[in-house]
């Protein structure tokens, strides 16, 4: 399925695009209660948005936490362009923005915090943040504290905090599930814009199939644990996608297919 997205293998760029960005080999992870991954293999393409969808507790969060190094793996190897995690910059967006942002820092200071850790001078930090704000067209008063902002705005701040380091890869674990429906729709637009603007390889865990398909270049469907790839479904509708996308036949068919695979996996006891 991956080869389908590789257009012309002669140019250098195309060759880069065809080579997977993330390679996961023989990944194993068990918790006291369950073997979540057992010799799991997966390639993730560069510059694509991959949605991860699957039954409750199948290991979606565990997967991105293993890739992002938040939890240690028992065995296996995860490489980014052949490099280990410690060699790359990445961004991680938590579901619970309220507990992920620093309430003692203003929004601006929250966003520049990772740059501060990199010991970047203040003037340069300011420039970086301002450039990011401009590129994303964000209209939030960044001198406010996080708790003075709406939930969606707070999550946008965490996304910007993740993006400000120019990450090679962006992880989001159910980033919009704590928001109301209206805000969720708005944030989908925002995330799509971020992705279009930056082209960062993005891994998105979602529990909402419509959202997963709508945003994705590929939908990774996982089985119950020990998790296997139940299906890896491409969705190639042109971007920017809009409400019209939701009624387009390709979208409807892709979503129906994912649902079918999902239900088959849920029923498998």
């Amino acid at each position: 399925m991956l080869t389908r997205s590789a257009p012309n293998p002669t140019s250098k760029e195309a060759a880069d695009a065809a080579r997977p960005h993330v390679t996961i080999r023989s990944l194993s992870k068990r918790f006291a209660s369950a073997v979540v991954y057992d010799s799991f293999d997966l390639d993730l393409p560069r510059g694509k948005l991959i949605s991860i969808f699957g039954p409750n507790g199948c290991g979606k969060s565990t997967l991105i936490n293993l890739i992002a190094g938040l939890i240690p793996r028992d065995a296996g190897e995860i490489l980014f362009d052949g490099k280990p995690l410690s060699d790359i910059k990445f961004g991680y967006v938590f579901q619970n923005y309220r507990e992920a942002l620093f309430p003692w820092l203003r929004s601006f200071e929250n966003i520049e915090y990772p740059l501060k850790l990199m010991k970047m001078p203040a003037a340069e930090r300011r420039l970086r943040v301002e450039r990011l704000v401009e590129r994303l067209g964000v209209a939030i008063d960044l001198s406010k504290y996080p708790y003075e902002l709406s939930g969606g705005q707070q999550q946008l701040i965490s996304i910007m905090r993740a993006l400000v380091v120019d990450p090679e890869i962006l992880f989001l674990d159910e980033p919009f599930s704590a928001l109301d429906y209206e805000m969720t729709l708005f944030m989908r637009e925002q995330l799509q814009r971020v992705f279009l603007e930056t082209g960062t390889t993005t891994l998105l865990v979602s529990h909402d199939l419509e959202e997963a398909v709508f945003l994705a270049d590929y939908v990774l469907l996982l089985s119950r644990h020990p998790a296997r790839v139940a299906d890896y479904v491409p969705f190639a509708a042109p971007r920017p996608r809009s409400d019209a996308t939701l009624s387009n036949s390709d979208f409807v068919a892709t979503k129906a297919h994912c649902l079918e695979v999902f239900q088959r996996e849920v029923r498998r006891a």
Binding site: A100, Y113, L117
Partner: peptide, 19 residues
């Protein structure tokens, strides 16, 4: 979550303690 957030951004243990 906040401690994890600092960790994924690359803060050392000491830095996380203070920040």
């Amino acid at each position: 979550t906040r401690l994890l957030a600092a960790k994924v951004m690359g803060a050392s243990r000491l830095r996380t303690l203070f920040d």
